[in-house]
């Protein structure tokens, strides 16, 4: 949205970053699913070049910096910084092991600064108003503001930018106005498809990296998806594994094989096969994926799965009555 609405902010932020580290070439990697952003960025870059704000001798100085938009084919994992670099180099988008960090050995083997739009877009404000002005927003170690997307089953969905520190409950109930269906909110997934599911009991959690981490959750890109009480959390857990299986680059074993086995095992649980053993297996698998995966895709998939298991266990183990009836 920033790229579409104020592409110059991104250009300015990147130019400042480039001059700071002495870089002369920048790339903006956009998925092909965002054609408007691509168009806006390209037009803005052309304008900036015309105006002498990009290219050689920027603004009459001795500094030079050039920008180029590259359109990616749209693999989720190409959002991971090293596979983004591989993709930019024209290879398969698979994750590189770190170290070496991109800052030492990045694009085409050169030292590379790699950040998301959010960070670059914040730079002009910080330089203009001072670091303190920026730091005055937020709480704890999470400073500044964060764009938050409210989505899913919600009455007032949309994109909001606010300082860190508001609670999850305020976001969902006060700003979002509860569910669209009017039924009670049962679960909220925060941080994108690999974020944890939080029940109402955790609505007092402030929007802050550390606070979320302390409750086995994450803020991720700031997406919030709301579900009402009709949700089946087994399906949500299965969906997380399936998402991982579909998007996996396939480099590392825990994610490549684990995500597929995760889907299969959760399906067994859904079919009520050896539930206790298979639940234990899913938990073990999540442990392997969380600590064994090479990147965040495999590493974060356990968050939605484990949180669903932890906070909504009743969806997974058959109710005692059914159990008795079955026996």
């Amino acid at each position: 949205m920033i790229m579409e609405g104020d592409p110059f902010l991104v250009i300015e932020g990147m130019t400042i970053a480039a001059i700071t580290v002495g870089a002369t070439k920048g790339y903006i990697y956009v998925r092909s699913e965002y054609p408007h952003a691509v168009e806006a960025m390209n037009a803005a870059i052309a304008a900036a070049k015309r105006g002498g704000y990009l290219g050689t001798n920027i603004g009459g100085t001795t500094q030079s910096f050039d920008l180029e938009v590259r359109v990616g084919a749209g693999a989720y994992v190409c959002g991971e910084e090293t596979s983004l670099l591989e993709s930019l180099e024209g290879r398969r988008g698979i994750v590189r092991a770190k170290p070496p960090l991109p800052a030492h050995h990045g694009l085409f083997g050169k030292p590379t600064v790699i950040n998301n739009v959010l960070s670059f877009a914040a730079i002009p404000f910080i330089l203009a108003e001072g670091a303190k002005a920026y730091a005055d927003f937020g709480m704890g170690r999470s400073r500044g503001t964060m764009p938050i997307q409210l989505a899913g089953n919600i009455r007032y969905g949309g994109l909001f930018e606010t300082a860190f520190g508001v609670t999850l409950g305020e976001l969902v109930d006060d700003i979002g106005g509860g569910t669209f269906t009017g039924r009670p909110v049962r679960a909220v997934q925060v941080g994108g498809p690999l974020g944890a599911y939080f029940p109402r009991a955790l609505f007092d959690t402030p929007f802050d990296y550390e606070a979320f981490a302390a409750r086995d959750g994450l803020i991720g890109h700031g997406g919030i998806v709301v579900f009402d009480d009709s949700v089946d959390m087994r399906k949500q857990a299965r969906f997380a594994m399936e998402f991982c299986a579909v998007e996996s680059c396939g480099k590392c074993t825990p994610c490549r094989i684990g995500s597929t086995r995760g889907v299969e095992t959760i399906e067994k649980i859904m079919r009520r096969e050896r539930v206790t053993e298979n639940l234990a297996l899913v938990e073990d698998l999540c442990n392997t994926m969380k600590f064994g995966s090479l990147c965040a895709l495999g590493g974060f998939t356990p968050y939605p799965v484990l949180s669903a298991l932890k906070h909504f266990r009743e969806d997974f183990v058959p109710a005692p009555t059914t159990l008795q009836a079955a026996e």
Binding site: P254, I257, R261, D284, L285, N287, T288, F291, G292
Partner: peptide, 17 residues
């Protein structure tokens, strides 16, 4: 102990295919 569990978990995945 932690490493042992992780490695076993990875090998279990390998052998499952």
């Amino acid at each position: 102990e932690r490493l042992k569990t992780l490695r076993k978990g990875v090998m279990e995945l390998y052998i499952s295919d």
